[in-house]
């Protein structure tokens, strides 16, 4: 489509910029608000900018008195285990589904689709019973276990594994290599982008995971960042927005930094699967 009128192009850019400004506005609010004192926030009409960007009192309060350090440690542990376990087990399963013909592979694939479709809200109550039976209430293991192998991760790995040429694997088999050697030595090095995509998606899911940790974690020692922030925002009598917005920045920052550097993998995950 060529020969666009320059005025139309200018209007298009103006409209896109306006929409982008509206979409990004909440990030501006949080950035400015996190450095404001309670007095500045309560002032009406309030100023746009904080008086002092070096006012880190809100952040200091979070880590010194509100245990955000513990929450952050818990979130990092949950995410690290979730990503590692998903990368390993979903690539094993994806490889088997795409490259090892076996009776029942259709059944397994059906399980993946079913697990992606069933609304989570229908499952969390019985999931909680199971965690009670295992004695894992109020533990990080109880938080990680249900998402240790996400169906979406297996689905992505299977789609990518399909594109690995059979001949390479076949040649290794003729040389006498076992399936584990083929998997680790030949298959894994070939699917680097798939591993990156799975790692990003599972990191995002576990870092932003909210309802399940809210149910499993029963005290501040096992809260993850989102749970800690939600509890803080709902417990407060007179709400200290500066403090909460600083907490929001702590939760948002790791994901934003990753997105800045690795966004093609974020978007690829959505495009491959149609799911978040």
């Amino acid at each position: 489509m060529s020969g666009k009128h320059p005025l139309r192009t200018a209007l298009l850019y103006a409209a896109l910029t306006l929409v982008a400004a509206i979409v990004l506005m909440p990030f501006v609010w949080v950035l400015f608000g996190a450095f404001k004192t309670q007095g500045e926030i309560m002032a009406a009409p309030g100023a746009w900018l904080p008086q002092d960007f070096s006012n880190l009192a809100n952040f200091a309060e979070l880590f010194e008195r509100r245990q955000f350090g513990t929450y952050m440690g818990n979130s990092l542990i949950v995410s690290a285990f979730t990503v590692a376990s998903n990368v390993l087990f979903s690539s094993l399963a994806g490889y088997a589904l795409a490259k090892l013909p076996f009776k029942g592979s259709k059944l397994v694939f059906g399980c993946i689709l079913a697990a992606m479709m069933i609304p989570y809200i229908a499952l969390f109550v019985p999931q909680f019973f199971i965690i009670v039976q295992f004695g894992l209430v109020n533990t990080l293991a109880g938080i990680v276990l249900p998402i240790a192998v996400m169906p979406i991760a297996v689905f992505i790995m299977r789609q990518f594994a399909d594109s690995v040429p059979d001949e390479l694997l076949e040649a290794a088999r003729l040389d006498g290599a076992g399936e584990f050697r083929i998997f680790f030595g030949i298959f894994l090095p070939l699917v680097g982008p798939a591993i990156a995509t799975v790692a990003i998606i599972t990191f995002l899911n576990s870092w932003n995971y909210f309802l399940w940790p809210l149910i499993v974690a029963q005290d501040q020692g096992t809260y993850t960042l989102p749970v800690g922030l939600a509890v803080a925002s709902q417990a407060a009598r007179s709400i200290d927005y500066g403090l909460l917005l600083a907490g929001a920045i702590v939760v948002l920052l790791p994901v934003l930094i990753l997105f800045l550097f690795l966004q093609k993998y974020f978007v690829r995950g959505v495009a491959v699967t149609g799911l978040k």
């Binding site: 870092w207 909210f210 709400i239 927005y241 917005l245």
Partner: peptide, 14 residues
């Protein structure tokens, strides 16, 4: 899309 929902809700409330 990738914004944490708890953080987003805090921003919205404010």
């Amino acid at each position: 899309v990738i914004t944490n929902i708890v953080a987003a809700a805090v921003i919205w409330q404010y």
